[in-house]
Design a protein around this nucleic acid. Sequence first.
DNA 1: CTGTTAGCGCATTCAC
DNA 2: GTGAATGCGCTAACAG
Lengths: 333, 333
Amino acid sequence: MRRSAPTLTDVAKLAGVSEITVSRVVRNKGSIAEATRARVQEAIVKLGYVPNRAAGALASAGAPLIGVLLPSLSNIVFPEVLRGIHTALAATGYQPLIGVTDYDPVKEQDLLSSLLAWQPAAIITTGFEHTDATRQMLAGSRVRVAELMDIDAEPIDIAVGLSQRRAGFDAGRHLVERGYRRFGYVGHDWNADHRARLRYEGFRAALAEAGLGVIAEERFDGSSSTIAGRQTLAVLLSRKPDVDVVVFSNDDMAVGGFFHCLGANIRVGRELGLFGFNGLDIGQALPVPLSTIRSHRFDIGRIAVEKLLESSERPEEKLIVDTGYEIIAGATA
Amino acid sequence: MRRSAPTLTDVAKLAGVSEITVSRVVRNKGSIAEATRARVQEAIVKLGYVPNRAAGALASAGAPLIGVLLPSLSNIVFPEVLRGIHTALAATGYQPLIGVTDYDPVKEQDLLSSLLAWQPAAIITTGFEHTDATRQMLAGSRVRVAELMDIDAEPIDIAVGLSQRRAGFDAGRHLVERGYRRFGYVGHDWNADHRARLRYEGFRAALAEAGLGVIAEERFDGSSSTIAGRQTLAVLLSRKPDVDVVVFSNDDMAVGGFFHCLGANIRVGRELGLFGFNGLDIGQALPVPLSTIRSHRFDIGRIAVEKLLESSERPEEKLIVDTGYEIIAGATA
DNA sequence: CTGTTAGCGCATTCAC
DNA sequence: GTGAATGCGCTAACAG
């Protein structure tokens, strides 16, 4: 039968030192004589000692955890953000504790309170849409907060992302410059995905500036997917066949639109332009690379972690990190 | 200035009861008079009390956490498993603590020890490829373990997944039955993805049974992706143009292969068959639905959690849950 | 149905 | 460079 896991006390006894010395060795904090350190290390290895984090967290009123709130795991964008978070966290000793909000601010609020129960060092969440209670909990807490993806509002502490509105605007202007005039839009459910709406608004603003507008618009009532894009473009074209370019809420939708065109024998880029958002690999692997805007999802996650861990205090001044975006001219629009 | 967060003691004082009573109300454990419960609840709300999990974990020698070790977040399959895990966890009060191993058993081992430091209730990991130290840590611990995706070996406690080998075998047999004879294989790096190799072995076994073999084989030296599939099929066809069907290591690769065919004007399904694995949405959204095998990633995650939380002890007998798979006939092979 | 007592394992003082 | 005392906030075990 296995005895209960070894504790600091066990290590201390074996090494012939006090518990606090072991603790210092483990945390690499304070000055320790090289000989002592070696002896302690040896004892640690011999016993297979693993520090009990719960005890550490309790004693020091703070856990080496980062709470991460994501709206969804279905949309490939968020696993990529998470990948950036993981990568940046890997070397630090912090671990991510994850919650999925389904784009629901109330769920976000509930999850936040379970995360805060661990006394994490920081919270990473998405966007600026929070309940009042959420804002209060965050404001009243000691943890630093990063809000990801968008930078078009005032952050609680730190925002990392891109201006969704400007990205949409630049997409519109780019297409106007390329000579398109009869614009269609294929989107998905905005209630969930607020950022898609911001891009749409920017896009419309660019058209308006050129004295143009959207002549056909179709929104799929659900989250974005390739299939949704395919179906929704079909509907749009059946109602308004004479658009010369269609802007999609994102690349998933746009790739679906591309598939529709393949099946319907529409020559993409010549008869009909297609434009996405995100710059996913899949879009660039198409026989004709998708025209779109590259967002830097991985970097957003990575930078958020870096900024959060730069200091152990909440920042004095709000910080906004613009990770930018680039238009990928592609060949579909 | 905000005072420090309210504790059980604060709530107890306000409600005029003892701490343990509050604790019982919070955990909904033991019997409490309705009147007392109401009074305590009121105090909790009034103070905005949030239990300190670290303290709870320390006192009860166990945290309401599930450690999750995933090989990758790049491969869409794992976010889907994670989604299943999250969904099943949502109602339970358990939270997932996540580590990404990059298919590296040594990283897995390190991450496992950081996860165990929290005294989680259970560990979810992937496959059967672990270091000896990993096996020892798990065997010697109190936590239940689920190994996901594959069921072709003896699990530590619970395995949830499908027989990768049989899936590969059935794919091979299916294609032989459909009359294909000149088989090509396009894969990615096996050192990382052991399951792709198992499928390949099953596939070859089916061919061998029919007196057939793989006449052309190309493996991309890296992880699977659409672009890798596209490039690698191109290479294979340039070396051996007369294959009549190509089996891919998974759908990502197969979709890439499909894109190559589009660009190269190869009529998929007539001139050349393509077969994938996983049954991703993207494959079914293609103009011609991809022939493939549907695995049930979401369910694998969900069921793993359900089985793990069924009991609070390690199971007496090893449990294997076969989530099965189905051949999607599709139209590409 | 409710309370008392006694730690859980560690880190933060402050000494020496 | 090292140690002793104390408590973090909660829950298990036992009373009553």
